[in-house]
Write a protein that binds this DNA or RNA. Sequence first.
DNA 1: CAATACATCGTACGATTAGGCAATAAATTA
DNA 2: TAATTTATTGCCTAATCGTACGATGTATTG
Lengths: 314, 314
Amino acid sequence: MTNQAIREEIGDSSLEVALGALRNSIARWTDKSDLLETAVSGLLLYQHDEPTQPRNAMYEPCICLVAQGAKRVLLGDDTYVYDAHHYLIASVHLPTMVQIVEASRSKPCMGVVLKLDQREISQLMVDSNLPQPRAQQSSRGMVLGEVTLPLLNAFQRLIDLLDEQKDIPILAPIIQREIIYRLLVGEQGERLRQIASAGSQSNQIARAIDWLKVNFSQSLSIDDLAAQARMSTSTFHHHFRSMTALSPLQYQKQLRLQEARRLMLAERMDAANAAFQVGYESPSQFSREYNRMFGAPPLRDITNLRQLAAGEGG
Amino acid sequence: MTNQAIREEIGDSSLEVALGALRNSIARWTDKSDLLETAVSGLLLYQHDEPTQPRNAMYEPCICLVAQGAKRVLLGDDTYVYDAHHYLIASVHLPTMVQIVEASRSKPCMGVVLKLDQREISQLMVDSNLPQPRAQQSSRGMVLGEVTLPLLNAFQRLIDLLDEQKDIPILAPIIQREIIYRLLVGEQGERLRQIASAGSQSNQIARAIDWLKVNFSQSLSIDDLAAQARMSTSTFHHHFRSMTALSPLQYQKQLRLQEARRLMLAERMDAANAAFQVGYESPSQFSREYNRMFGAPPLRDITNLRQLAAGEGG
DNA sequence: CAATACATCGTACGATTAGGCAATAAATTA
DNA sequence: TAATTTATTGCCTAATCGTACGATGTATTG
């Protein structure tokens, strides 16, 4: 056995130990098919005890780990599958399809999510004099990386804080900074640094995405948005798509339709009003696009969902 | 013979008489194959005693009449042929191919050109309370119309002024206003009014064209130009093309290459400098496009032209 | 200095939009 | 249950706009 192989062996076994500890911690705080917002702001824990169908979900800027099980994320034509040995970073808000592909009663999928704040990342880059990214080109806003022991340990310490709530205000930010630092210098650090470096194309696109996220119900002028990002219309398109796998309009449409669905489902709003609320000016157009996205026209889709929920509840 | 027919007969014969008078006047001031800028500013007279090949020419905003002979104007894929019974209005600067198709020693092509000033047109529209145009859609910046007797008479009086130079400062503007008025209320008045009504799409495009005409050697941002015209990039394209039969870039290219040709021919500038002067940043690109437009690379084209001129001169 | 790779930009094309109207489904009432 | 009203969805037209693609210009590499 070579030294290299020995190191890997040791590393791997340490990793497994750390993952085991993480599983225990997650299990202490969450129950089956449970999602918990913890006392550490931005830190979420969850477990789920069976595979799911793909479902629409919005990823926020965050880093996601699973201590057990596996998930599949669909972004445009790309597929990202991650498990206990791979983390996933989303550097912007991204509409995706998410599916738990590996989970069971005996071995539920157990996950940790830590939301990332771009300002923190930028601050850390300045503070630690990390080099500006080489390439100007913008790439996908989602990336997979290999889980390392120090990273796992940091997460472990973060979760351990939940037992010592008084330490959270002081220690949580420190540990979060450590995690971010480890990501920045890790294999996918370049990506994160691109997003965070002010004025870069990635950063400009990220700003545009933030704007859309807030103002999706307003009517959208791509030309203006491009001007804001100091790019030509077509260049803006190019970079937007390379980051989100969606055209700006498709992105806005996703936001609009998902919000409309939420309004009808949770706030019991009728189709026409929901359509209007999210920025559509004609109900017929809304109906057509809703149908295209969710597979059924508004009312029928909502009825389906209600029946499904009732069935699960009973 | 119906009254209608009689009126037409009378009208036609009067028209012929008027055209005869116009021919005499033009002949008094111009010689064979001669172009005269008259003492009336904006008024040009010319005659040409043989048909020509099509040649590149820039039309300014103007109205063109021929008292004898015929001309053909090529604008993009459109062809405009006009003779003694049809005038041609150009409402913006337009790069065209022009060809005299009917002319001979005994019956030379005899023409009158009066340049039009958009501000005068707008002023007249306000003063005379002419209605704003109905349609918003923009159309070709060139149009043919049927010559009428009053129009011919006005032109006759304008040319007659050349014999009474002291009256020009007072009478020329008045007669020009009459001509513009007749055009505005005539069959093609709608077109002219569109161009002149501030804020209309046609007017916005006309402004963009004016800008291009002056700043063709600067590098051009279509997005900015569109923003200036308060249109989206694509809408701007659409209207620009419907008015000029050219895309904005093609339009600019025409201006650049024609100016470069002039610089080389008249100012004896070398190719590389001419290229640079009109805004090209690489001589190779210039050469390629020059070749495409004039059928020969810069140096050879100029040599050809010089030989041609020498041949005609001798 | 040529050749090549790469990013950017212009623009033609096709998708999307508003707005109006017709058809249909659902709900309410006779 | 039938009739009437109301809410939703489907369809049309004309215009605008988004955007994929190909042309153009810039940087890089041998």
